[in-house]
Lab assay of single mutants.
Amino acid sequence: MASQGTKRSYEQMETDGERQNATEIRASVGKMIDGIGRFYIQMCTELKLSDYEGRLIQNSLTIERMVLSAFDERRNKYLEEHPSAGKDPKKTGGPIYKRVDRKWMRELVLYDKEEIRRIWRQANNGDDATAGLTHMMIWHSNLNDTTYQRTRALVRTGMDPRMCSLMQGSTLPRRSGAAGAAVKGVGTMVMELIRMIKRGINDRNFWRGENGRKTRSAYERMCNILKGKFQTAAQRAMMDQVRESRNPGNAEIEDLIFLARSALILRGSVAHKSCLPACVYGPAVASGYDFEKEGYSLVGIDPFKLLQNSQVYSLIRPNENPAHKSQLVWMACNSAAFEDLRVLSFIRGTKVSPRGKLSTRGVQIASNENMDAMESSTLELRSRYWAIRTRSGGNTNQQRASAGQISVQPAFSVQRNLPFDKPTIMAAFTGNTEGRTSDMRAEIIRMMEGAKPEEMSFQGRGVFELSDERAANPIVPSFDMSNEGSYFFGDNAEEYDN
């Protein structure tokens, strides 16, 4: 993207840094990872977990959730003011799984939030270390993106479920800051804005008074975040219109849905970061690795190297396929839920299948599930090659597409044709070009129609051997075009429920 120079890199967003050079960025990201790792080690000690239990991804998720809940100030305040039966607002906890007599047992633990905050700050040299908290939120978000298709949420806001490739980060909490905003897809931002506008339509006082002023500035800020994701002048001009509207209503909703559809071809720039579970960072720190000293990046080879040398386990339900569970977590670790499966298959070195073909449910185990038949197995999170994460949407291309997802959002900077089903997408653009945004709409449609099938995206960008740390010898991959490109292809993934 041309304006790259004016933006802070995501590592800076990730670490609240002012302008830093590459070495400083690597050190501050490393410091953040160190903090998460030290916190995780301490929690495993508190909970008396064995090494194996500490490497269980379900335990990692519970521990991450506990610290996120302990620092969720708004919710904590709300819980104190609106006490609900049987919930102690000062405590947080969740299921911890232990191996007892050759069987997995679930144990519900409860801790004072104050105590968890103390352990977290102690692991982070006394700081609140917001960057580390956001990092864990993005890992949870990436896992949700890989596990669930947001059909219901899309339909509720009037969008087409086939636009799911635009929904990265749709389950990120509001408090995820600049680093969170960077990884949100165009569809996620559109959905947040539509929800806001709908509230304004239904509630006369939404934009009024002292609160209304705050609401208005939040609305304009979200519009600017979305505008910054678009790469064409016409899309940005249309966002200006939406932002400046005196009284946002149905016309703005129409414009936003139009823009979301246009992003299936004229893709937005959305950041991709490899955020790993805390149970990967903990053992690495415990083994003596100093992330701050060595430096770390979320968008280069580092996460690949770390996963190459990590042992992570997962509980497996009786009829689940461990290899499929591994694929789910591998995609989440690489922030690749909406990437082209052919690119992923090449990088991973084994075939990556669409969601609907995987015999696996989510990673988390519900409290009512029976533990008797639970097994555990090693997650295979290694890769054959590594590639640089991208934040450009890439230019655009036609490809055989599917009944489910009709476009992709690249996660890796790797040369390819970008699949999208042009006739299906263009069919949504018939007729409606009147109104105050008509010239911009016409211009956007013209650009979409001009998108050429034979153009290559990320020209000359390749993948790298894991021994090639400096990215000196790019390998331009070859793809098996007979395979499906979309992950949520004609899909039956479970729906995400809060």
Rank of each mutant, 00 (worst) to 15 (best):
M1C: 11
M1I: 05
S3L: 15
S3W: 11
Y10E: 07
Q12I: 06
M13F: 03
G17E: 02
R19V: 03
T23F: 08
I25M: 14
I25D: 10
R26M: 12
S28H: 12
G30M: 07
D34E: 15
G35K: 10
G37K: 10
G37T: 04
R38D: 07
I41G: 13
I41T: 14
Q42A: 09
Q42N: 02
C44N: 11
T45G: 05
T45R: 10
E46I: 13
L47S: 07
L47I: 11
S50F: 09
D51K: 00
E53Q: 11
Q58M: 07
N59E: 05
N59F: 07
N59C: 02
L61A: 03
R65F: 08
R65A: 06
V67Y: 09
A70L: 01
A70T: 15
A70M: 02
F71E: 05
F71Y: 15
R74E: 07
R74G: 04
R75F: 03
N76Y: 04
Y78C: 07
L79D: 10
E81W: 11
H82M: 14
S84K: 01
S84L: 14
P89Q: 02
K90G: 13
T92C: 09
G93F: 07
P95M: 10
I96D: 05
Y97I: 07
D101T: 14
R102M: 09
Y111G: 00
Y111M: 15
K113S: 11
I119Q: 06
N124Q: 13
N124G: 12
D127L: 14
A129E: 04
A129L: 10
T130G: 01
A131M: 09
L133K: 08
T134D: 06
H135F: 10
M137E: 12
W139I: 09
W139V: 10
H140A: 03
H140M: 06
H140F: 08
N142C: 09
N144R: 01
D145V: 06
T146M: 02
R150M: 08
R152P: 06
A153Q: 10
L154I: 15
V155N: 07
R156T: 05
M159C: 09
M159Q: 07
D160I: 08
C164H: 02
S165K: 00
L166F: 01
Q168I: 05
S170F: 10
T171W: 04
T171D: 13
P173E: 06
P173K: 13
R174Y: 01
R175G: 02
S176K: 05
G177F: 12
A182N: 15
K184W: 07
G185E: 14
T188K: 08
L193V: 14
I194W: 05
M196Y: 07
G200H: 04
N202S: 05
N202I: 12
F206H: 10
F206P: 03
W207F: 15
W207K: 01
R213V: 06
K214M: 10
T215E: 03
E220R: 08
C223A: 14
C223T: 14
N224C: 06
I225K: 01
K227Q: 13
K227H: 09
K229I: 09
K229D: 04
F230D: 03
Q231V: 05
T232C: 11
T232E: 09
A233F: 01
A233H: 10
A237T: 12
M238L: 15
M239V: 15
S245W: 00
S245M: 01
R246C: 09
N247F: 07
P248L: 09
N250S: 12
N250P: 08
A251S: 06
A251Y: 11
I253M: 14
D255Y: 13
I257E: 06
L259M: 13
L259F: 02
R261Y: 07
R261E: 09
S262G: 14
A263V: 09
A263W: 03
A263Y: 02
I265A: 14
L266A: 07
R267Y: 02
V270F: 09
A271I: 04
H272S: 07
K273S: 05
P277H: 10
A278P: 05
C279Q: 05
V280C: 13
V280I: 15
G282Q: 08
A284Y: 14
V285A: 08
A286R: 13
S287R: 15
Y289R: 13
G295Q: 06
S297D: 03
V299L: 07
V299Q: 03
D302H: 14
P303G: 05
P303T: 11
F304S: 05
K305C: 07
Q308Y: 00
N309W: 02
S310V: 12
V312R: 00
Y313E: 04
S314N: 11
S314A: 14
L315R: 07
R317S: 07
N321Q: 08
N321K: 15
P322L: 05
H324Q: 14
H324F: 04
V329I: 15
V329E: 04
W330E: 04
N334P: 01
N334S: 13
S335L: 06
A336Q: 05
A336R: 06
A337M: 09
E339D: 15
D340P: 01
L344Y: 08
F346R: 04
I347V: 14
G349S: 09
V352K: 12
V352M: 08
P354T: 09
T360Y: 08
T360I: 07
R361S: 03
R361I: 09
G362P: 04
Q364K: 02
I365E: 06
A366V: 03
S367R: 03
S367I: 00
N368R: 04
E369L: 08
N370T: 08
M374I: 15
M374L: 14
E375I: 05
S376F: 06
S377P: 02
T378I: 10
L379A: 02
R382C: 11
R384S: 13
Y385L: 09
I388N: 04
R389N: 09
T390D: 05
T390R: 02
T390E: 01
G394T: 00
N395E: 02
A401G: 01
S402P: 06
A403T: 15
A403C: 10
I406K: 08
I406L: 11
V408Y: 06
P410S: 09
A411K: 00
N417P: 11
P419R: 05
D421Q: 10
D421M: 12
K422R: 15
M426P: 02
M426D: 00
A428E: 02
F429N: 01
T430A: 14
G431P: 06
T433R: 14
T433L: 15
G435I: 06
R436W: 04
T437D: 15
A442N: 13
E443R: 03
E443G: 09
R446T: 13
R446L: 04
R446M: 05
E449R: 06
E449D: 13
A451P: 00
A451W: 10
A451E: 05
P453T: 11
M456L: 09
S457R: 01
F458S: 10
G460T: 06
R461P: 05
R461Y: 03
L466G: 01
L466M: 14
S467D: 11
E469D: 12
I475A: 09
I475C: 06
I475T: 10
I475K: 05
V476C: 14
P477T: 08
P477H: 04
S478R: 11
S478L: 14
D480V: 13
S482D: 14
G485V: 12
S486Q: 01
S486F: 12
Y487Q: 04
F488D: 01
F489Q: 02
G490V: 04
G490S: 06
D491G: 09
E495R: 10
Y496A: 10
Y496M: 11
D497V: 15
